[in-house]
Design a protein around this nucleic acid. Structure first.
Length: 128
DNA sequence: GCATTGACGAAGG
DNA sequence: CCCTTCGCCAATG
């Protein structure tokens, strides 16, 4: 992977509007690294990127995920409850769940079963 | 350029 | 325990 968000923390980026993608790429990079059969949360990603206080931005980044050139396994990203909060943003309301089930992840009532066990923390997996 | 919104999250009522 | 409010920051109207 050419792009990595491994050491964004030390990156001192200007808050200029010139960023355009920096933030988004970081999110995509992390999400793409989520192992199959695992899930992560907006908060975990946000925290890893150093913007834990604004998990919403991660959501926004995901909003543009479908326009990303490279696929982004957005279905592996759920909210802190393990709920498929973004399922409504997929092509079909059931697509997200189907993709997860394809990875052996059980989904009941729009929530990932054994979410705590399947939770993949980028801060830990990628090395904080 | 101000107001509203949003795939979140934590706290308060 | 359910619902509302607030914070965060970028995008959009």
């Amino acid at each position: 992977m050419k792009k990595k968000a491994a050491k964004i923390k030390q990156e001192e980026k200007p808050r200029s509007t010139t960023r355009q993608y920096s933030f988004f790429e970081d999110v995509y990079a992390v999400v793409r690294q989520v192992p199959k059969g695992r899930v992560t949360t907006f908060g975990a990603i946000a925290s890893y990127l150093g913007t834990k206080l604004s998990a919403r931005m991660v959501g926004w980044a995901m909003n543009g995920a479908h326009t990303a050139e490279q696929k982004v396994p957005a279905h592996r990203v759920v909210n802190r409850n393990g709920m498929l909060s973004g399922k409504a943003h997929f092509a079909t309301p059931t697509l997200m769940q189907e993709l997860l089930e394809k990875e052996k992840i059980k989904v009941v009532d729009d929530t990932v079963v054994n979410f705590e066990k399947l939770f993949w923390d980028p801060a830990v997996a990628l090395g904080w």
